[in-house]
């Protein structure tokens, strides 16, 4: 009996050690690119004595970071501010529109509700960027095509398409609460403001987080508008600007790309970790409801 106990404990222990080893390996694999990014941002690649074969740079420098703030080809502060403004207004407007759509689709029963949901599902199956030509033309009609801030309109216009997660959350709020308000003489509007919004803090934060971080990573629409309207480099977003640095003929500004990528990632990552709980709740809830 004692022997069995010992062997079982040994098994448990060896299993646990194995699990730790696997988890450590996974962590190294997942962290390696970011580790590499930070090292590269301090590497003096332009130096002829630089050894490109090793991961750890043999010559260290701050020039990459300096270039971001001094080199006229890389107006990084402008890019950063442009993106911040776009992200802020996108987050604000998109969250309001998503909550409105989700509430209507979750709580109200009206003619064409199922039809609207099916329409959104079908629209999502078409490759979106083929519509860029038309969207650009519409922006031109509105006289907005020469500014990168028109991206705010582009991002928020299709907010209705991302109603799924918030609707799934609203569906779980008991309907008896609505009925209580209605009996007390409230309207559907009162229910929305007094019941649904105060109970939905996690999903509101999730929506804000997702819509705020989206513009930092998207470059397709930004690139198209910038190319077609020939916007000056000071009007770029971070994603378009940094992507341009990697596709240049020489790798002269590659170090600046790494440094810029680090500076973009730090605030976004900090925001994510601060609001991690809400993000996990939102993404897990969304998957279960489909």
């Amino acid at each position: 009996m004692a022997k069995v106990q010992v062997s079982k404990r040994f098994m448990d222990k060896s299993q646990r050690v194995l699990a730790y080893v696997i988890l450590s390996v996974i962590s190294i694999i997942w962290l390696f690119p970011f580790f590499y990014l930070i090292l590269q941002s301090f590497a003096d690649i332009q130096n002829p004595l630089y050894n490109t074969k090793s991961i750890i740079p043999n010559i260290w420098t701050f020039n990459n970071y300096k270039a971001l703030f001094t080199d006229s080809r890389v107006p990084f502060i402008r890019w950063w501010l442009n993106t911040l403004i776009i992200a802020f207004f996108t987050a604000l407007l998109q969250t309001i529109l998503v909550l409105m759509t989700s509430y209507a689709l979750s709580r109200l029963r009206f003619k064409g509700r199922q039809g609207l949901m099916k329409l959104i599902l079908i629209l999502g199956m078409f490759p979106g960027f083929l519509g860029m030509l038309v969207i650009y033309y519409i922006l031109e009609l509105l006289g907005l095509n020469t500014s990168i801030y028109s991206l705010i309109l582009v991002y928020t216009a299709s907010s209705a398409m991302s109603y799924y997660v918030a609707k799934g959350f609203f569906d779980t709020i008991p309907k008896s609460l609505d009925e209580a308000v209605m009996i007390d003489g409230g309207t559907k509007n009162t229910v929305f403001w007094r019941i649904i919004i105060p109970l939905s803090k996690p999903i509101i934060i999730y929506t804000i987080l997702v819509s705020f971080t989206g513009p930092w990573g998207d470059f397709m629409f930004g690139k198209y508008i910038i190319q077609t309207a020939q916007i000056q480099p000071t009007g770029y977003t971070v994603a378009v600007g940094l992507q341009g640095l990697t596709t240049m003929a020489t790798n002269e500004l590659y170090g600046a790309f790494c440094a810029g990528a680090v500076l973009v990632s730090i605030p976004i990552t900090a925001l994510f970790f601060w609001l991690q709980r809400y993000y996990v709740e939102g993404i897990a809830g969304g998957a279960v409801k489909g």
Binding site: C258, I268, T269, Y279
Partner: peptide, 15 residues
Amino acid sequence: LILTIAVPQFVSLLL
């Protein structure tokens, strides 16, 4: 693992 989600995708993929 969440770090991968937090860093914008174009940064990690371009890298």
